[in-house]
Amino acid sequence: MIAFENVSFAYESGEPVIRDMSFRIEDGEAVGLIGANGAGKSTIMKLLLGLVQGEGRILVDETEVNRDNLSTIRHKLGFVLQNSDNQMFMPTVYEDMMFGPLNYMVSREEADKRVDEILDRLDLQHLKHKYNHKISGGEKRMAAIATVLAMEPEAILMDEPTSALDPYNRRIVINTIKELSQTKIITSHDLDMIMDTCSRVILISKGSIVADGKAEDILSDKELLEANHMELPLSLSRNG
């Protein structure tokens, strides 16, 4: 369970970026966070991970997100950053994938097994021993997703997981997301992907929730989307 209770936040000396926001996400839900550039989607994720602190209460499984229990919270949440260059810091993809599990005291054999299983699932075995500074942007994105999956978190937060991916890898990511049983929060401007992977959508504008409901309802509301700098997903605009 993940909950925001009257959360507000502003970066230093700036306008509020999140305004008195409340929502609740139950275990196993797949929620799409959508909204224009600068609406506050990435900031919501940072608040949830305790990377920035705001006012109000944020709960993860009844534990409040604050300085004292950051490590408990972070163990539960896996985060795919918007910019994968900043996600990968070990020399090779393999070492990067091992980093999380080993830090959480998973045995080396167990971690090795996980890594192989995930690389198979994502069709990435060829990247295993590649150097992070020698792989393409899209490959790095796939590798970043793999590093997060290797941690087997209880909930997964993905910030723009399909940007920079070619259609083949985009499809793999979508299928992988669909197979995950964990709680998922995904931000994206790729509304077709959100349509495919999420049952619920929260639409953000200027730091406030403007709509929260079933994905098919919100994603088929042409006026609402256009008022928020978005367009109907291709799959819907063709049919309708």
Partner: peptide
């Protein structure tokens, strides 16, 4: 970027121990 990199290390359990680099 360095800040984000460090966050990314923290998010994956970096706690100034080096179990991952035996």
């Amino acid at each position: 970027r360095a800040q984000e990199l460090y966050s990314s290390m923290l998010l994956r359990g970096y706690h100034q121990h080096f179990h991952y680099a035996p």
